[in-house]
Design a protein around this nucleic acid. Structure first.
Length: 494
DNA sequence: TTTTGAGTTGTTCGA
DNA sequence: GTCGAACAACTCAAA
């Protein structure tokens, strides 16, 4: 990195009419490559660049391959977050320069075109990102540029939370202990470099002509750092009740920060610092962020887990092919109310309550005996917070194919889960309105009512609402048998 | 090396 | 309906 020459500082100028100019060519300009860290506060790459250089260009590369794959909710969210970042940069006299192309090549070309020698970015852990970033390293090296990496998306970077033997724990609890004890050097604050305005592509219209899957009725959450901070403030008022409300899908008991953490509109360290550990509720919430780090660290070490069960024995499990069932699951018409409610919430809003994610995932993998990878793909597509390490990690956890496998099989019973966590049935009634006439005692298992009682509630099973596509008891046993077979290494029986 | 303790989020059964 | 006990019975971390 070039030392900052004294006396060459050229402030970005505003000319009459509000058109901002490009910084002078002889400025010491660096590039900050934004990716999943769409914030200026508590952003190590941003801090490093703005501290070491006179001026910075904020760069974002539209990856149309990723945008096309993302569901409409996530795509909308990231485009709104980018617009918010652009506004925040505007307040510093600059803007976000948006380009498209192959990021690995484009970033280096942009830096070279600016006469910059240094590029700053926060690292990522997915196989896709690792490949792209390795190619970016090579492209920068070819041009004689330096690409500086920081960690900004995790509380602790991969490799820094170890067991006594120096490895990454395969069990969460010891990881959590080590994670809590890991030392904390706060990330440095930003410097006062000028933020340069560069001509830019327009951001795609967030509501533009991409194919839609859901019905797009989701609430328009406030994007960007301001939105994240507002959500954090709301959550702080209720975090002390978190242990009591976190599992109730009808209550606003969770932080609603998942998409913010996904796109980096808030720093996970900021969240940990602000929440603190003063009460059991705060401790329980911070523990969730340790899970987030744990899955990221695990995938950094085992990138193949995106496509393959960590426990290789499960490659041999004979998953059922059930195209109609998979469609029913996706569309929220399995006939199992809590599952259907969650799947419809996902389609309609791009978000599903975590408790219900577990129940819906368990239903697909255990009761339907469908390969977890198909469910993972669907969730990842639709979730606004869809994030490979988190989604894959949680799906493998539910499937029992991943780390931290319990010594025995856990098959969630969606009726029991519904009675326990949606005791009034209000969550089900909200998302499965055709069951709205059923009371709390019947809404989680309408098939237990007689036709007369159902008719009085306006329900005709098989017509207004499906019969369950599987028998919960029998399908549970089928899953236990299939899992036993695999775990005991027995050859498949014919 | 061996041993011991323990494991996010569960289910079912019977009193 | 609620509650406590029984179930399951593997793998990892750490002493």
């Amino acid at each position: 990195m070039r030392p900052v020459p004294a006396g060459t500082r050229t402030p970005t100028r505003r000319v009459p009419g509000g058109v901002r100019t490009v910084a002078a060519v002889d400025d010491d300009v660096a590039v900050v490559w934004f990716r999943r860290d769409l914030r200026l506060a508590d952003n190590p790459a941003w801090a490093a660049a703005t501290s070491a250089h006179d001026a910075v260009v904020a760069l974002y590369v539209l990856d149309h391959r990723l945008l096309a794959r993302a569901g409409a909710f996530r795509r909308r969210r990231v485009l709104h977050d980018l617009a918010a970042l652009d506004r925040a940069l505007g307040e510093r006299g600059g803007s976000l320069r948006v380009v498209d192309g192959d990021a690995a090549e484009v970033v280096a070309a942009e830096a070279a075109g600016l006469g910059a020698t240094d590029v700053y970015a926060n690292a990522d852990v997915t196989p896709y990102a690792l490949d792209r970033d390795a190619r970016a390293d090579a492209a920068h090296a070819r041009r004689g540029l330096e690409l500086h990496w920081s960690w900004g998306s995790l509380v602790h970077p991969p490799g820094t939370v170890r067991t006594k033997a120096g490895s990454l724990s395969k069990v969460f609890t010891p990881f959590h202990r080590a994670w809590m004890a890991a030392p904390w050097d706060p990330w440095p604050g930003p410097g006062d470099a000028d933020v340069v305005h560069r001509p830019s592509l327009d951001l795609p219209d967030p509501d533009g002509p991409y194919p839609l899957v859901g019905d797009e009725q989701g609430p328009a959450a406030r994007p960007g750092e301001d939105g994240a901070r507002a959500r954090l403030d709301v959550f702080l008022d209720q975090v002390d009740r978190y242990p009591d409300t976190r599992d109730l899908p009808a209550e606003p008991g969770t932080s609603q920060l998942s998409a913010d953490l996904r796109f980096g509109t808030v720093s996970p360290r900021t969240v940990v610092e602000v929440v603190g550990e003063a009460t059991p509720g705060r401790q329980a919430f911070v523990r969730q962020l340790a899970w987030r780090d744990w899955f990221a660290h695990t995938i950094a070490l085992r990138p193949e887990m995106v496509e393959h069960p960590i426990d290789e024995r499960f490659e041999g499990l004979r998953w059922r092919r059930d195209d109609d069932g998979l469609d029913a699951w996706r569309e929220g018409r399995t006939g199992v109310p809590l599952v259907d409610a969650g799947m419809r919430q996902l389609r309609a809003t791009g978000w599903m309550h975590n408790r219900v994610r577990m129940v819906a995932a368990s239903f697909l993998v255990k009761n339907m005996l469908v390969d977890w990878r198909l469910g993972e793909r669907w969730f990842r597509h639709l979730l606004m917070d869809g994030d490979v390490p988190q989604n894959v990690g949680n799906w493998q956890w539910v499937a029992g194919t991943g780390p931290d496998a319990a010594p025995f099989h856990r098959v969630f019973n969606p009726v029991v889960q519904g009675r326990r966590f949606d005791p009034t049935g209000s969550y089900v009634r909200r998302w499965v309105p055709e069951l709205a006439g059923l009371d709390a005692s019947a809404v989680h298992e309408p098939w237990r009512l007689g036709p007369l009682d159902l008719a009085m509630a306006g329900v005709v099973l098989g017509e207004t609402y499906p019969e369950p596509i599987v028998d919960l008891g029998r399908s549970r046993q089928r899953a236990l048998d299939a899992y036993d077979e695999v775990r005991r290494g027995q050859p498949p029986r014919e």
